[in-house]
C-alpha cells in the first residue's frame, strides 16, 4: 500500500505519522488512519486547508446546521491546544483519545473539569455553571425561572462544593463525579472502538504496509 503515498502530508500542515500517533494514544495505526478519513471530511467542509476551524467543527457536530453553541465552542477550545483557532490532525487524534473507552477515568475527569472551568481559573465557579445552564435553556425548549435556576445551583453546590466556598476545585469535582458517575458518560465515545469499520476507506489511503489492528 506504500504506492499510494498520498499528498496528505503536503495538504495537511499538522499531519503526523500515524505510527507516532498510535504510539502516543490508545488507537492502533489503522484506527489513526481511519480517523484521518474523518478529519479530512471535516477539515475540507468549508476551507480545504487541512485544518478544522470552528465553523467546520460546529457544522460536523450539528450536521450542517450553522449554530453558535457555547458548549461546542468550549470543546473546540480544548481541542485547539496550540490556541491558533484551528485543530490540526495531531490535536484531533490526541483530544479524541481522551474519549476512548480504554483511557483511565482520571484523564477523563481532568478533561471534564477543564470543560466546565470555562475561564481556566482552576475552579468551576457558580457564575460559570449559571452561564452554562442559561445557554442550555437557550438551545432547548426548557423554560426555567431565575428562582428555579438558583435553586438548582444551590442544590448542586451543596452536593459538590464540599468546603462551601462557592467554587468547585479539582478534588471536589473528582469526589462529586465519583458519586455521580453518569456525569462522565459524555467523556466516553463507544464509536472510537469501531472507527475502522465506520471509515473503511482508510485502507485505500494507507501509507503503512502492514496494518496493525
Amino acid at each position: 500500500m506504500g504506492c499510494f503515498h498520498s499528498t496528505a502530508k503536503r495538504q495537511h500542515p499538522g499531519y503526523e505519522d500515524p505510527v507516532d500517533l498510535a504510539s502516543q494514544t490508545s488507537f492502533s495505526v489503522s484506527e489513526v488512519e481511519a480517523l484521518f478519513e474523518l478529519f479530512k471530511s471535516i477539515s475540507g467542509s468549508v476551507i480545504d486547508d487541512g485544518l478544522i476551524n470552528k465553523e467546520e467543527f460546529q457544522l460536523a457536530l450539528f450536521k450542517n446546521q450553522r449554530k453558535e453553541n457555547l458548549f461546542a465552542n468550549r470543546i473546540f477550545d480544548l481541542f485547539d491546544v496550540k490556541k491558533r483557532g484551528a485543530i490540526d490532525f495531531g490535536d484531533f487524534v490526541r483530544a479524541l483519545n481522551v474519549f476512548h473507552p480504554n483511557i483511565p477515568m482520571d484523564e477523563k475527569i481532568d478533561f471534564s473539569f477543564k470543560l466546565y472551568d470555562m475561564d481556566s481559573t482552576g475552579f468551576i465557579e457558580r457564575k460559570e455553571v449559571k452561564q452554562m445552564l442559561i445557554a442550555l435553556l437557550g438551545e432547548s425548549e426548557m423554560r426555567l425561572s431565575d428562582d428555579i435556576i438558583e435553586t438548582i445551583l444551590d442544590k448542586t453546590f451543596s452536593d459538590a462544593d464540599a468546603n462551601q466556598d462557592g467554587k468547585i476545585d479539582r478534588t471536589e469535582w473528582e469526589n462529586f463525579v465519583t458519586r455521580n458517575p453518569s456525569l462522565m458518560k459524555i467523556m466516553t465515545l463507544p464509536y472510537l472502538k469501531d472507527i475502522t469499520t465506520t471509515f473503511p476507506s482508510f485502507v485505500f489511503n494507507s501509507e503503512v504496509d502492514d496494518l496493525v489492528t
Binding site: A60, A72, L115, Y116, L153
Partner: peptide, 25 residues
C-alpha cells in the same frame, strides 16, 4: 427526578457536548 436538580446532569445534555455526532454520517 433527582438529576433535574443537578446542574451538571442538565448541562451535559447539550448537543454541543455530543461528540458522537462527529461519527454519524
Amino acid at each position: 427526578k433527582p438529576e433535574s436538580m443537578n446542574a451538571f446532569a442538565l448541562i451535559s445534555r447539550s448537543q454541543g457536548f455530543n461528540l458522537g455526532n462527529l461519527f454519524e454520517k
